[in-house]
Design a protein around this nucleic acid. Structure first.
Lengths: 196, 196
DNA sequence: CAATTTGTGTCGCCTAAACGACACCGGAGC
DNA sequence: GCTCCGGTGTCGTTTAGGCGACACAAATTG
C-alpha cells in the first residue's frame, strides 16, 4: 500500500508528458507563467500542439501537473513518503516545504494564479502524506478528533508557516526554522497521537 | 549549398533516434561496446525493442550513427563547416580531430570494432569537409591533381596524425600539436592550391 | 470602426511506435 | 548428446502522436 503510484503506462505517454513538463519548467524560468503560451511549450518540447491537448486541457492543468511532480520529487528525494511518522521526519518535511515554497516564491513571486495552484498542490500532498503517517501509527492514543481533521490542520499550518518564512526578508536556515516551529505543527497531531 | 543537412523529419523519428543515441552513449561509458546489447539500449531509452530495428539494423549501425552525430557536432561547435578554407581553420580542424580521437581512445581504447567504425566515420567527414573547402576556393591554381585526391590524402594524413597523437603517453596540447603538423596536412592541399 | 494578427481548442487522416508473439541461434550446463 | 536460456531479428495488430485545416475569441493595428 505504498504511495508509489508508479503507473505502468505507455512509454510514449510518459515521454511526451515529461517533455512537456521539462519545456514548461524551462519557459517558466525564462518568461514567467503569464506570458507563455501553449505554442511555446509544444514547440520547445518538439511535440505537436494538438498533442498537448490530448494530455492537458490547458496550461493551468500543466502547471498543476508540473507542481505535483516537482513537489513529489522533493519529498521522495528525502525519502519521506516511504518513512513512518517521527518528529525527525516532521522536521524534515517542514524544511522541505519551506525550501520548495521559497524557491517558487523567489522565482515567480509576482505571478498570481501561479501561486494559487502551487499552494493547493503542496497542501494537498502534505495532507496526503501526514494522513498516511497517521494511519500507519501503531500507538493510537487519545483520538479526540479524526485523523482527517488532524491532517488538515497540520498541512495548513505547515504550509502557512512555510509561506510566512518565504516572505521574510532575512530567511533563517530551513532546518533551523523547522526546528523552531516543530511544536506548532506537532500540536495539531498531538490531538490524535502521543508524541515521544 | 551549405552542408547543413537539417532534414526536416518527423519529430517522433528525431526524438527516438536521439533517445537511442543518448542511451547508447551512456551505456558505452558504463559497460563498453562489446558487452552491451540491444535490450539494454532500448530499455534505458524507454523505447520498444522492435522500434530499434525500425531505425538501425544492429548496434553497429547505431554506433556508426552516433559517431557521425558526435563528430559532426564537434565540427559544428567550432563553426568549421560553415567556414571557408584557411590555414587557421585547418589548424582548428586538426586540433578538433585530435581531441575527438583522443577522447574515444582514452575511454574505449581496447574495443576493436569500435575503433574501426569510429575511424571510418571521422575520415569520411574530414574528407567531405576538406573537399567542400577545396570546391569553394576562389583562387584555383596549379591543379596538378583532382580535389578528390587531395582531400583523400589530407583526410587520411590528418586522421593518421591524430591517431598517433592519441597514442602518445604524454600528449602535447591539441592546438600546439596542430600547429606543429600543419605543414604536413597543408602540403597535401598545396598540390591544388596556393597557400597564403 | 473594420481588418488584421495571435492564441486557442477541436477534428480527421495518416504514420511511428508499442506490444506480444514468433522462430532462430549460440552458448552454458545437466 | 540434450535441454534451457539469453539475445536476436521479424511480423501483425493496436494506439499515441504528427499534421493540416478549421472555427472562434481576444488583442492589435490602420
Amino acid at each position: 500500500m505504498l504511495p508509489i503510484t508508479e503507473e505502468k503506462l505507455d512509454p510514449r505517454v510518459r515521454r511526451t508528458r515529461q517533455l512537456l513538463v521539462d519545456s514548461f519548467n524551462a519557459l517558466l524560468e525564462e518568461k514567467g507563467f503569464t506570458d507563455l503560451n501553449v505554442n511555446d511549450i509544444t514547440t520547445r518540447a518538439g511535440v505537436n500542439r494538438a498533442t498537448f491537448y490530448a494530455h492537458f486541457p490547458d496550461k493551468y492543468a500543466l502547471l498543476d501537473h508540473a507542481m505535483r511532480e516537482s513537489f513529489r520529487q522533493a519529498i521522495d528525494r528525502r525519502m519521506l513518503s516511504a518513512c513512518r511518522f517521527s518528529t525527525d521526519n516532521l522536521r524534515l518535511l517542514t524544511a522541505a516545504v519551506c525550501e520548495f515554497v521559497g524557491s517558487i516564491h523567489t522565482h515567480n513571486g509576482a505571478e498570481e494564479q501561479f501561486q494559487a495552484l502551487a499552494e493547493a498542490q503542496i497542501r494537498e500532498q502534505v495532507y496526503g502524506l501526514v494522513l498516511h503517517w497517521l494511519e500507519n501509527m501503531d500507538t493510537i492514543q487519545r483520538c479526540t478528533v479524526s485523523r482527517e481533521r488532524a491532517a488538515t490542520a497540520a498541512s495548513w499550518a505547515l504550509y502557512g508557516l512555510a509561506h510566512q518564512w518565504a516572505h521574510e526578508r532575512q530567511r533563517p536556515d530551513p532546518a533551523r526554522f523547522a526546528e523552531e516551529v516543530l511544536p506548532l505543527v506537532a500540536a495539531n497531531l498531538g490531538q490524535t497521537i502521543e508524541l515521544a
